[in-house]
Design a protein around this nucleic acid. Structure first.
Length: 227
DNA sequence: GCGACAG
DNA sequence: ATCTTGTCGC
């Protein structure tokens, strides 16, 4: 998969925050995704151990969700975890794994926020700026924004609002499980993002993409086999 | 100043 | 993210 040349991410926290503000206007919201034309969906995740990062990307056929390709990339972590600056810590590792993907992918779902970020530049949007395919953010917990509790049945969702803007959706992917936070990464719209995440979560709370990528990342970290 | 805070 | 046992509920 092509990952455009990314700028230096080795900045100071304040410099990183400034960069996010100037990149935010570059995100393209829309157009909608046509599920019919989606043949492959990818999921990415990172497992860490000390200062080492183990990133993986799993490509699943769609709508079957069977894995067709798994890639891993290991590198050193140079940036600390700072709420709001996760991209600067994990992008180097994830980008390395994405570059190894050979299967044509139609959309990527990241285990992070997209526009649902204080400066509208979560990892899914940031990395999405360097990809030619639509990206989506699907996080397990909230970073910013307020929302009402979505209905308890699968498919229910409420708006995630921040500073008067709808920055994402709080989606119940299964009945009676805690909801996930879905937001636009780049090159797609919120409606499509929600539908794709739902289509990828037929059995578990988290989409199959993130579940499998998470498993693969742990395998990589423990030096086990990747598919 | 206090509390919140993706992974 | 990672460290960790049992336990409550569908």
């Amino acid at each position: 998969m092509k990952v455009r040349k990314l700028h230096d991410l080795d900045l100071s926290p304040s410099g990183a925050s400034r960069l996010q503000k100037e990149l935010a206007p570059k995100v393209v919201t829309g157009p909608p995704l046509d599920p019919t034309s989606i043949n492959h969906v990818a999921g990415a995740d990172v497992s860490t151990e000390g200062d080492r990062a183990y990133a993986t990307v799993v490509v699943l056929d769609f709508p079957g969700l069977a894995p067709v390709e798994v890639r891993g990339f290991e590198t050193e972590l140079t940036f600390p975890y700072v709420p709001g600056l996760l991209a600067f810590r994990e992008i180097p590792a994830v980008a390395g794994a994405l570059e190894k993907v050979e299967t044509p992918v139609d959309a990527v779902i990241f285990d992070a926020q997209g526009l649902a970020h204080p400066r509208r530049m979560g990892l899914a949007s940031h990395l999405g700026l360097f990809l030619d395919v639509p990206s989506i953010g699907c996080a397990k917990t909230r970073l910013v924004g307020t929302h009402d509790e979505p209905g308890r049945e699968k498919g229910n969702a409420t708006d995630l609002v921040h500073k008067g803007e709808i920055i994402g959706k709080v989606l119940r992917t299964r009945s009676n499980v805690s909801p996930v936070y879905v937001s636009i990464g780049n090159h797609t719209d919120l409606q499509s993002a929600v539908e794709l995440v739902l289509a990828c979560s037929p059995k578990y709370r988290l989409p199959e993409t993130t579940r499998q990528a998470h498993d693969a990342a742990n395998h990589l970290r423990r030096g086990e086999t990747l598919f």
